[in-house]
Nucleic acid binder design. Sequence first.
RNA 1: CGGGGCGUAGCGCAGAUGGUAGCGCGUCUGGUUUGGGACCAGAAGGCCGCAGGUUCGAAUCCUGUCGCCCCGACCA
Length: 422
Amino acid sequence: MKYSSCFAKTSKTAPADADSANAKFLIQAGFVDQTMAGVYTWLPFGLAVLRKVEQIVREEMNALGALEIFMPSLHPKEFWEATNRWDNVDILFKIHSQTDKDYALGASHEEVVTPLAKKFIESYKNLPFATYQINTKFRDELRAKSGVLRGREFRMKDMYSFHTSQEDLSTFYQKTLEAYVRAYSRCGLNVKVVEASGGIFTKNPSHEFQALTDAGEDTILACSTCEFGQNIEVATVKEGDACPKCGGVISTVKGIEVGNIFDLGTKYSDAFDLNFTDESGERKKVLMGCYGIGTSRLVGAIVEACHDDRGMIWPKSVAPFQVHLVTLNSKDDVVKEQIEGTASDLVRDLEAQGVEVLWDDREDVSPGAKFADADLIGAPLRVIISEKSLKEESVEWKERSSSESRLIKVTDVIADVIEFVK
RNA sequence: CGGGGCGUAGCGCAGAUGGUAGCGCGUCUGGUUUGGGACCAGAAGGCCGCAGGUUCGAAUCCUGUCGCCCCGACCA
């Protein structure tokens, strides 16, 4: 893709009121645009990242055997009344129609998926199964904040599982926990799995997935040596204590909650009378689990964890493109043509190999401005083609995460890039 | 929802004591430039968030209102 063809440009100045790194850089680099408080448009570069994150999550859910569906965001009032959440959930957006009907905008989808499952579950032979969607959620938060970390409209992957026994649910719950850790890891983010409150969902323990960074709004008590961690809301340990698992020291850290899983038990099966017939012909409640990953928040968390003072530093797996190609102008028309020719050949060959390239083809912009934009946008690899490099029959290779650059022969670039993006 | 801050050109900002709006960046034209956000000349671009009020006169004072950000409360 040519930079000049993208309408969403970078800005030299950061937005004045953005405090968090994700808001600052995502807006300044033209990845998102704020429509209103807590609501963002995902622009081409930002959408590319969001899609990659969601695809990774999708692959991990598919690997669990869950099947993807797509549920509506407009919900009938009756579904939310069935769980007493119409009047008791403050964050629920409610809509009144011209035909005098009430609807909710989906803040979550237990109320939709449970009646749905009821249509297909009759006996133990239909169980277990899990289904998920990646969709937009609406929550009337009192205060949106921190860029895409806490919005009123945001993207979320939510999965629901249905079981005949607690053992089966627990097994699936554990497998999901492991799949979540893999998904975050593939997105370039290290997370801590912590014990958390089940909120209004369940009395059973739940687990949160916390990206540990000072920008986080959650307080975590974590062992410095083993994986033990608890959200301060439910913590049975305090700072300085010995870890109950390994004896290490417990310390306080900040985290961004990028996922949460719940053992729902029969909470929703009770509300919607979701039953199955077991082997002996007895009617029993279906056991459910629900599992969420805020995918747009995850993008924000990645920025919080992966940036420096010049801009974002995308992990290869979720970068909007792998290669940021910069061509520098020459006053010599012949050399200029060589530079352009080399660049367009390189773009063509890389794209043929499935490598995504942003080519900064602007002619009226100084080298410094192009470098600053490359640092801001944060593609993993910057490749410069210039008069200087072509004299050595080379391009200049610089990784965003490193301060060193080196020359690579033009004839070797394709192979080296393919190796790099692997 | 309580507390605080801020709304002036696309972005970042300046506009004591009221007199009808300016700077930098960006944009457009022309020219010179080209390895870490180049330079010169010219130009376009504003209902000073919105609504009332005070005044001969309001970006400026008063009242209300809307919006954005931060802290807190809240948070599946």
